[in-house]
Nucleic acid binder design. Structure first.
Ligand code: ZN
Ligand code: ZN
Length: 658
DNA sequence: AGCACGCCGACT
DNA sequence: GTCGGCGTGCTC
């Protein structure tokens, strides 16, 4: 009798697969139940093995799928992921397996006969497209095969309407559409627009949905019953039948990169998917990433442009306000307060952006300079007024607030600096009677609270909105006429590799919330560096011009996107273990002349959960070279004694070095 | 990741 | 003597 052999990927942090035998033939991409170290686990068949292996194999306990959950295109993509990010294959397969199917259960396959009707309801505001929109839609409708295209649309230019029309084009052809969005927080608006246009037979797929809901969408998408799926990172490989196009909204958004565990970029992955499936992909944003801009410049990506807001207005530029000689009240300058007063008088709303939540980011003793820090993270504690606790934003530990300095027993302890909470309290006092709305992680933690807050913004007439990044992302606040950016100097002076890209995107996104309804919005940037070259360049609000200059510099310096980098991070209870390991890497790695390793460097978060953190930056001139170099290091490191003392991982295309 | 195996310190 | 500490190594 014939015995078949298969390589099975098991969800553990090991790069290898394990070979099992089976009396029946199994399709690659199916899940199986196997005994692994005496325990039953769900694994994935990744490859058929033609020859009997020269080691002992055990039988596959159960074939879980009659129809494989991953098709041949998916398998190609999953192998690419494991190779590109050098991540254990079993974990890669597991990541894209819906949670329900990680358990040894049979699939609940939906019949292919259920065909849904999608009809664009044209009564959803009879919007006529302007000239730019017509031209852009024309470009997008004509994309063919693997055909990436940037949709550059300034804030408020009506990108969503273009997405809707493009979706309609594909539905008419009997194709399905996948729309990726950065985070759940801003999806409701996009979601609502799609539902009111195409009805509610739309799959909404993100990590806040229950496993059951997600699995249901997954099966309905695969059967062809669902033709529109809107989702976050975890939805990139959602198995839509007859997928026609992928739309990535806010393609520049950093949250597309997973920053824990398997550090893949969902944007880059979706581009890979489009390539493997030979379909177009649309990257929509008001602030394109440098990576995308480079590829547009080199004509590898097409481009469609919406340079005007749908109502014909342009987003406001910036006014820089020198605060070197200003008296600040809770971080706000007198001039800013006056501007707020004026805006409120006109019955309009004000948006205040600050990159910090909590009351105050620094609790300090004025006589001995003692600073409240987290005992396990080496990070400064942030005072939260509502909780009356000092909180570590790294590990969420809460500490009581000492009345006397633990170091010198002095009672002159000060709260330095302002976060959203302090500003909210200050404004409530200063502008008594005015509605103050705070929008940050702390006020939106509860389910539905974001929706509530947004409704409040829309209901209110004059109001002040105070918030962090969340406030800058994609919202439509028609009454906001004034924006104030309180502290972006850290972003301007930071030497971090992406800091200019990040800060310029942030400023533009903030200005994108302002003056959307009427054409007299303004945005004030409070800064101690009013003469900063980059700030001056950005002042007009012309992101593209700024980004192209930035790109030119990256080219000269051979920084990404004109080179590829990886971060090699180590953690261990003893700093010297990290350093020894990273030195061994420097000594042994085979570097060509266009490659470099910079390190070991203590990481910005130098300690976490009692472990020291160090890193090296590995650079090569292409992604392919970088990939080879990393594989070389992994092989070499397998035989060093230094390797055993540390935990280590690579972060490919890192977005920060923290 | 888990889990067994093994070789040293401090317990009944 | 032996209980258990976690450093090291292996998993089809
Ligand atoms: Zn003190
Ligand atoms: Zn901490």
């Amino acid at each position: 009798m014939n015995i078949f052999y298969y390589d099975v990927a098991i969800p553990i942090p090991i790069r290898e697969t394990f070979t099992y035998e089976c009396k029946e033939s199994i399709q690659v991409g199916s899940r199986v139940l196997v005994e692994f170290r005496k325990k039953k686990v769900v694994g994935h068949i990744v490859k058929a093995v033609s020859k009997k292996p020269n080691f002992y194999t055990i039988q596959i306990s159960e074939i879980l799928d009659e129809e494989p959950i991953f098709k041949s295109n998916d398998i190609d993509i999953l192998f690419w992921l494991a190779d590109y990010y050098q991540h254990p294959i079993g974990e890669v397969f597991d990541t894209f397996c819906p949670p329900t199917l990680r358990k040894p259960v049979k699939r609940n396959i939906h019949s292919r006969n259920i065909q849904s009707e999608y009809k664009a309801f044209s009564n959803d505001k009879k919007v006529t497209l302007n000239k730019e929109q017509v031209e852009s839609l024309e470009i997008l409708n004509n994309l063919d095969g693997f055909d990436p295209c940037l949709l550059y649309g300034v804030t408020g230019s009506g990108k969503t309407e273009i997405y809707l029309r493009l979706t309609d084009t594909y539905l008419t052809k009997g194709k399905s559409v996948l729309i990726l969005v950065p985070e759940i927080s801003l999806t409701p608006q996009l979601e609502d627009r799609f539902v009111s246009r195409f009805g509610d037979n739309i799959g909404i797929y993100h990590s806040k949905k229950t496993a059951k809901q997600r699995y249901d969408i997954w099966e309905r998408a695969q059967s062809g019953e669902l033709k529109i799926v809107i989702g976050t990172r975890s939805a990139v490989l959602c198995p839509l039948n007859e997928l026609g196009v992928i739309i990535v909204d806010e393609e520049h958004d950093q949250s597309y990169k997973q920053h824990e565990g398997f550090r893949f970029s969902a944007r880059d992955l979706s581009i890979k998917r489009a390539q493997v499936e030979a379909i177009p992909i649309v990257l929509g944003t008001a602030t394109p990433s440098l990576q995308t801009l480079r590829l547009v410049q080199e004509k590898k990506y097409k481009e469609a442009k919406l340079l005007k807001r749908a109502n014909g207005f342009k987003p406001p530029g910036f006014i820089t306000l020198d605060i070197n000689d200003s008296q600040l009240e809770s971080g706000i300058a007198k001039e800013s307060l006056d501007a707020i007063t004026n805006t409120l008088k006109e019955n309009k709303q004000v948006l205040i952006f600050i990159n910090r939540r909590g009351f105050s980011p620094l609790y300090e003793c004025s006589s001995c300079r003692w600073i409240a820090e987290c005992s396990s993270c080496d990070a400064r504690l942030v005072f939260h007024h509502g909780l009356n606790r000092l909180i570590c934003h790294r590990c969420d530990s809460a500490y009581g607030v000492p009345k006397k300095c633990p170091a010198c027993n002095s009672s002159s302890l000060n709260l330095q600096g302002s976060g959203t909470e302090r500003i909210e309290l200050f404004l409530e006092n200063y502008f008594e009677g005015t509605t103050i709305i705070r929008l940050d992680q702390d006020t939106t933690k509860k389910k539905g609270s974001l929706k509530e807050i947004l409704e409040m913004v829309h209901k209110s007439e004059s109001a002040i909105l105070v918030g962090t990044q969340m406030l800058a992302k994609g919202h439509d606040f028609p009454r906001v006429e004034l924006g104030i950016i309180l502290n972006c100097d850290s972003g301007i002076t930071s030497p971090d590799i992406n800091s200019l890209e990040k800060i310029s995107q942030l400023l533009i996104q903030v200005s994108g919330r302002v003056g959307r309804k009427e054409n007299n919005g303004k945005v004030i940037i409070q800064t101690r560096y009013p003469e900063d070259k980059n700030l001056l360049e950005l002042r007009s609000g012309d992101y593209l011009n700024f980004a192209l200059n930035n790109l030119k510099q990256k080219k000269e310096l051979r920084h990404p996107p004109y080179s590829a980098i990886a971060l090699l991070r180590t953690t261990s209870p003893l700093a010297k273990h990290n350093i020894n390991f990273l030195h061994q890497v420097n000594k042994s790695a085979k570097l060509k002349s266009d490659m470099s390793i910079i390190g070991p460097i203590p990481s910005i978060i130098s300690k976490s959960r009692g472990n020291f953190r160090h890193h090296s930056i590995i650079q090569a001139s292409s992604k392919i070279d970088l990939n080879k170099l990393i594989k070389n290091i992994i092989v070499l490191a397998g035989s060093w004694k230094e390797t055993k003392k540390v935990k280590w991982y690579f972060d490919i295309d890192p977005i920060d070095y923290n």
